[in-house]
Design a protein around this nucleic acid. Structure first.
Lengths: 233, 233
DNA sequence: CGGCCGCTTGACCTGTGTCAAGGGATGTGG
DNA sequence: CCACATCCCTTGACACAGGTCAAGCGGCCG
C-alpha cells in the first residue's frame, strides 16, 4: 500500500509540509506517504503508545488531548486541513488524537520522514515554522485556561474558529459550522458541558451569537466577539 | 560590542543551540552573539514589541508571560540555563519576558541567526527539537490549567522544578530553592497568591513538603508528590 | 525607625461544578 | 410506521473550590 499516493495531485498540496517541496521532490515524498481515512469519533493515536508515524491532515477535523488517570480530559487543540500532527513526540506519543468528523490523513513513518528531512532541509524549516505557530497557539490557550472567564473562553473559542475558517480576512459578519460537540468544547476550554451550554445561551441572550441547528453559529459582530474574547468585554 | 563573545569557553557550551555545533562552527556563532546581564525583576522583552532578537539563557531564571488588557497575567513558563527563547515569534514577540533573578543571556539578531541556520542546518534541527520539547511542556500545562485542582497544580509545579533541577535522575528525597515569588507561582498555575499560599500550608500539614526560609522546599517523598501532581493523589 | 514587600491566615462571596430532570433529533427493531 | 433507546443539548437547584477583601507579621533597606 505504501508509495501509491499521488502527492502532486493532493488536495492539500500548497498546505502543510508538502508546500515546502518542489514538484520533483514531491515524488520522493509520495513513496513515503500513505493516505488513510478515519471515520468520525475514532481514536487513531492512543496517548502513550509507541510513536511510529507522523500525520498530515488532508480532510476533516481532529482533536488532540491529554488525560488524567481518573478520566479528566483536556483537549489541547483542534487541528484542521493542512496541519501537521506528531511534533510533540519522543518515543511515545505525548497525546491522544481522535477524529471529530470523518478525516483524511496522510501518514509517514517517522524514520522515513527523518531521512527525507536530511535530504530536503526545507521540510525541516517548514516544520520549525509550524512548531512556532503551535507554540503561539499553546501560549494563547494557557492564557485562556489560566485567566479567562467562561464568557471570555467561549467568545475566544468562536473567534478562533473564525480564524481557522477565514485566515486573516475575517468578514465583519460571519457564520461557522462547529463539527465538535459541546463536550469537546468543554474539554478544550477547561469547563463543563453545562457551563458551555449556559454560556452559549447567555451569548444568544446578549445577541452576540445566533444559534441555528445547534452546530450552526451566526456571528452578527465579529469585532464585538473578539473584544470579549480578549478581555475587553 | 558585537562579536567579542567567546562561545567555545561559554559555561553553557553543551546546552541549547550551541551544543548543535562543532568547535570550529562556534567561532562563527561568536561573531553573531552578544552576552547580556539583566538584573532581577527586569523586563527585557515586552509583549507585542518588534522581535529583533533571539536569546539563549546562560545563567539565572526567566519568566515568560502573556497578559490581558486589564492586567490579568499568565506565566507560560519559567526557563532556565541552556534554554532558547524566542521561538514563538512572528514579527512581534507574542509574549513578554522578565528576569526572576539576575540573568545572563546570549543575544543573537534574528537575521544573523537565520543566515547561520542556512549555513548550519544542525542549528535548525536543534531548534526543532527544542520546539517539540516546549510543545510537550505546553500541553502538560494546558492539562494542568484546564483540569487539575489547586492541590494537584502546586504538586505538579514542585515536581516540575525537580525535573528542571535534576533531569531524569531525581533522588527519592530532594530539596529545591524556588527563585520566584508566590505571585509568580500563582500566575503560572492560574491561581491567586492566597490560594498558592494556602496550598503550600496544606502540603506542609500533610507532610508532603517542608518549607524552610520561604524559598527553600524540602520534599521527603518525591514519588508521593509526583503521584498527587499527576492526579493519582 | 518607618515604609515597603512578600507571605500567611481568616471570613465571606461567587463563578463554576455537580446532580438531576427533561426535550429534540436520530436510529433501530418489531 | 410506531415504540423505544440513545445521544446531545439545555435548564434548574444546590454545593463548593477557589477568589476577594482585609488584617497582621516578619524581613529588608533607606
Amino acid at each position: 500500500m505504501e508509495g501509491c499516493t499521488n502527492c502532486a495531485a493532493c488536495e492539500v498540496r500548497g498546505h502543510g509540509v508538502c508546500s515546502a517541496l518542489a514538484d520533483k521532490e514531491l515524488e520522493r515524498l509520495s513513496r513515503a506517504a500513505v493516505k488513510v481515512t478515519v471515520p468520525a469519533g475514532h481514536m487513531f493515536i492512543e496517548e502513550g503508545s509507541d510513536a511510529h508515524d507522523f500525520f498530515n491532515v488532508t480532510g476533516g477535523t481532529v482533536k488532540l488531548f491529554k488525560s488524567l488517570p481518573d478520566g479528566r480530559r483536556q483537549i489541547t487543540g483542534f487541528v484542521g486541513v493542512g496541519h501537521f500532527l506528531g511534533l510533540a513526540v519522543s518515543d511515545h506519543y505525548a497525546f491522544g488524537a481522535e477524529s471529530v468528523e470523518q478525516v483524511q490523513l496522510c501518514r509517514f513513518s517517522r524514520t522515513k520522514l527523518e531521512t527525507l528531512m536530511e535530504e530536503f532541509p526545507s521540510i525541516e524549516r517548514r516544520l520549525l515554522a509550524e512548531a512556532a505557530n503551535e507554540l503561539v497557539a499553546a501560549q494563547d490557550q494557557m492564557l485562556l485556561l489560566g485567566r479567562k472567564t467562561a464568557h471570555e473562553r467561549v467568545a475566544s473559542f468562536l473567534y478562533g474558529r473564525l480564524v481557522e475558517k477565514y485566515g486573516e480576512h475575517i468578514p465583519p459578519v460571519a457564520d461557522i459550522l462547529l463539527p465538535m460537540t459541546r463536550a469537546d468544547i468543554a474539554d478544550f476550554l477547561g469547563l463543563t458541558v453545562e457551563t458551555v451550554s449556559r454560556t452559549f445561551s447567555r451569548l444568544r441572550r446578549e445577541h452576540l451569537i445566533g444559534v441555528g441547528a445547534g452546530q450552526d453559529i451566526h456571528i452578527p459582530s465579529v469585532s464585538r466577539l473578539e473584544a470579549i474574547g480578549s478581555g475587553d468585554g
